[in-house]
Design a protein around this nucleic acid. Structure first.
Length: 776
DNA sequence: CAGTGAGCGAGCTTCCGCTTGACTT
């Protein structure tokens, strides 16, 4: 029987550690927290501000199991993570399992390696109540903010909404970015590119250069090109300087999510799911971490591996230190558990993510890349002035880059979010070039470009920003992004680009040609866009709870938590200090009787009646309302379609929404109504629907057209049922858009093409065979 | 892949951070 029970947070970790420890040790997992505030209620005594914990149902069996094993063991070792949450987990374990804190050992380690575990066992300590209290403060504060603010939104905006310290700030970032984009006015300018030729070693070589000045107007650009016609181009200086590039640190959760999005196209949650599988299979270290630290073991094996694969000169052992705000560094960086495995077994996604992690880790232990950068300045002098050389103030610059030693670039290059805006790099390999060389102009062109506004967030770039602000933790980045989409504050969507024309003037020989070209700009895919609800909720919270919405709120409160952890302040009084101010604010806002709903906007007036027209958030989302509630005539409502926004919808567009549904007349004594649903315009008659073809304008469709469409649809329906069976009413052969198919038990099955000509002759048994076959 | 679509208005909704599992599609 085992005398020692070790409790860690993760079952995969438990399995690994059990191998390192002797037979006397049983290692179990708590699966994260075992106890929390009640799920359905605030669960905090609001006078004493003390938490009321419970063990959730799904944890009961686990807790009973842990309790039984702890009772049998002579010694219990609490080995949860070395951070605020981990310390609290250990404390809850003590409380729930009835352990005596004075004889229970608390151990910590930052890496899952045998020496680290054995060293930890040598140095047990006791639970640090200051750290536990810092966690309780964090937990209680988040619950107070979330469970006090959300009901305010239910009352003032819409039911089921939510607010919280992390999610509300995430939405704010997206809303403000969108406003920045709206406010941005793109200005055009002109870049001048030149292609020169020179003779080098007997053959002709090309030199690409760009003018050091960008012109504001087309006239200036043209005047410059004109001047180039009779200019001579002379190399006025050549300078070379060595540059070095250093590798990025190993992956944390946040950087892994960003790189997997850029390089592999993974969503944030997809990355975490794949990483989880890699972790469970023992291929990588823990995937929720904010640390860039690598174990000594990893440093040693990486050195060996890099030396073997690429040679000694490529190896450089490095230690990285985190600069991230609020990092708690309970784990290692995300790295392969075994660097000698350059690839693994698994599905394609797992292999690709693993290889990315392997490369990033290996590169972090490799030499700097050495680059020689050459800058060539080319001056223009105008031969037309007779007296002296008339030197232009402008210079053409050509940059050349030669990698003299690739170092870590051999395996890995970090990607950036910068969008390619047609600004191709003017860096290339230059020919052997010297001061005083005269260049021939082959082509000089002035291209109209446009200043670029702010870029919308992607899931990954939002994670990056949140981490920079110290908001959220590795375990919550992915869930936060899901939450703000589930609440419909934010939508992941595509923003269609707009067509833009630009001019390009090219000077070739004595010829100057001006062309106008078209391009699509601002086409964005998978970007985070705020919805009307997101905007209204954000503005409401910004107005009423600016301190919670402050980008520094988390960072400031974290300082207080640190002070609790250091034993310098008492957790309950920190929370009291916050709640004293927060609670009256909430009361004020919830009791404030306002004329209008949050986010309500008067769009205009209905010309016929003079009644006001409003855009607002209704019970089921954004709506247009005509008339006031206290008016004798009942107000009318229409949903705002998703392609229009509350902020920008015009009175004409708003009134347009009320023109449908419209009744065009009677057919068979029943009204024929034209409506518009989420699948486009339709005709409704006798509670049956007929789609309107795109060629028909729902505002102009006549009764005659509608009747003929209804009859057409009736005919189609008749022909739809090709065959039914007496044996079983659940089996039917129908005729669909793509030919005949079988419906059985509300599911569809395709009929092999060879049988299409004789579907009417198919027997029940033959149909059943087709169904059975496709089920396999 | 195979056809969709309005409306009643009861009772409920919600936070952040730790960690995986099992309704079978």
């Amino acid at each position: 029987m085992q005398e020692n029970l070790v409790i860690v947070e993760s079952p995969a970790k438990a399995k690994t550690i059990e191998k390192f420890l002797g037979n006397d040790f049983k290692v179990m997992s708590s699966y994260g927290h075992i106890r929390d505030l009640k799920k359905k209620e605030i669960s905090i005594d609001l006078d004493k501000l003390s938490p009321n914990y419970e063990i959730p149902d799904e944890k009961q069996k686990l807790v009973a199991d842990l309790k039984a094993k702890a009772k049998k063991a002579k010694q219990v070792w609490l080995a949860s993570d070395e951070d605020r949450e981990g310390e609290a987990i250990s404390w809850h374990l003590c409380e729930v399992l009835g352990l005596d804190e004075s004889v229970t050992n608390r151990i910590v380690f930052h890496e899952i390696t045998k020496p680290a575990i054995l060293a930890a066992i040598e140095h047990p300590r006791h639970i640090d109540m200051n750290l536990v209290n810092a966690q309780q403060a964090r937990r209680v504060l988040d619950r107070l903010v979330g469970f006090k603010l959300s009901p305010v939104l239910w009352r003032k905006v819409k039911p089921s909404l939510s607010a919280g310290r992390v999610q509300s700030v995430a939405v704010r970032l997206i809303v403000e970015r969108e406003r920045d984009i709206q406010a941005f006015h793109s200005e055009s300018y002109f870049r001048v590119h030149a292609l020169f030729t020179m003779s080098a070693n007997g053959s002709e070589a090309e030199v690409k250069a760009e003018l050091d000045t960008r012109f504001k107007t087309h006239e200036e650009a043209l005047a410059f090109l004109e001047k180039c016609k009779d200019s001579t181009f002379e190399v006025s200086s050549v300078s070379k300087k060595p540059l070095k590039r250093v590798p990025a640190p190993p992956f944390t959760t946040s950087t892994l999510q960003q790189e997997a999005a850029r390089k592999l196209g993974f969503s944030v949650s997809q990355t975490m799911m794949v990483a989880q599988r890699l972790y469970e299979n023992g291929y990588i270290t823990y995937m929720r971490t904010d640390s860039v630290n690598l174990s000594k073991l990893c440093l040693a094996t990486s050195k060996e591996e890099v030396t073997n694969l690429y040679g000694k000169e490529y190896s450089q052992v490095r230690n990285f230190h985190t600069k991230t705000k609020g990092a708690q560094e309970a784990h290692e960086a995300i790295r392969p558990t075994d660097m000698s495995a350059t690839t693994i077994n698994g599905v394609a996604q797992e292999k690709r993510l693993y290889e990315l992690i392997w490369k990033r880790t290996a590169a972090s232990q490799m030499s700097d890349a050495k680059i020689e950068k050459t800058t060539v300045e080319i001056s223009l002098s105008n031969a037309s002035s007779k007296s002296r050389k008339d030197k232009s103030k402008y210079l053409f610059i050509a940059n050349g880059e030669v990698i003299t030693f690739d170092g870590f670039l051999k395996v890995y290059r970090e990607s950036t979010d910068d969008e390619d805006n047609g600004n191709e790099e003017f860096s290339h390999v230059l020919p052997d070039i010297h001061e005083g060389d005269i260049l021939q102009r082959k082509e000089i062109s002035a291209i109209e470009r446009f200043s670029q506004g702010p870029i919308r967030y992607t899931e990954a770039s939002l994670v990056h920003k949140l981490e920079e602000l110290g908001i959220g933790r590795p375990s919550t980045y992915a869930p936060t992004i899901s939450t703000i989409q589930q609440r419909e504050y934010v939508q992941k969507g595509d923003k269609k680009g707009e067509e833009r024309t630009f001019t390009i003037d090219t000077l070739q020989g004595e010829n100057m040609v001006t062309k106008t070209k078209k391009e699509i700009v601002g086409n964005e895919k998978g970007k985070l866009l705020p919805t009307d609800i997101g905007i209204v909720v954000n503005d409401f919270l910004m107005q009423n709870f600016p301190n919670i919405m402050d980008y520094h709120f988390t960072a400031n409160i974290e300082e207080e938590f640190d002070s609790i952890a250091a034993g310098k302040s008492e957790w309950n009084s920190v929370i009291r200090g916050f709640y004293q101010h927060f609670e009256p604010e909430v009361e004020n806002v919830i009791n404030a009787r306002s004329e209008h709903k949050a986010g309500e906007r008067k769009v205009g007036v209905e010309p016929k009646t003079g009644r006001p027209v409003y855009a607002k958030i209704g019970r089921f989302g954004p709506v247009i309302q005509i008339g006031d509630a206290d008016d004798n005539r009942k107000p009318e409502f229409a949903q705002i379609p998703s392609d229009k926004s509350m902020e920008t919808i015009t009175i004409e567009e708003a009134l347009e929404l009320f023109k449908l549904p419209r009744t065009v007349g009677l057919f068979e004594g029943i009204p024929v109504v034209i409506g518009k649903g989420k699948f486009g315009p339709y005709i409704m008659h006798d509670r049956k629907y007929v789609s309107l073809p795109k060629t028909e304008d729902p505002m102009k469709v006549t009764l005659e057209t509608a009747i003929s469409l209804i009859n057409e649809k009736r005919q189609q329906d008749k022909e739809r049922h090709l065959k039914t069976f007496e044996e079983n009413p659940k089996m039917e052969i129908l005729n669909g858009r793509y030919g005949p198919y079988i419906v059985y038990d509300d599911k569809n099955y395709r009929i092999p093409k060879t049988l299409h000509s004789k579907v009417k002759d198919l027997t029940y048994q033959e149909c059943m065979d087709i169904v059975e076959k496709s089920k396999k």
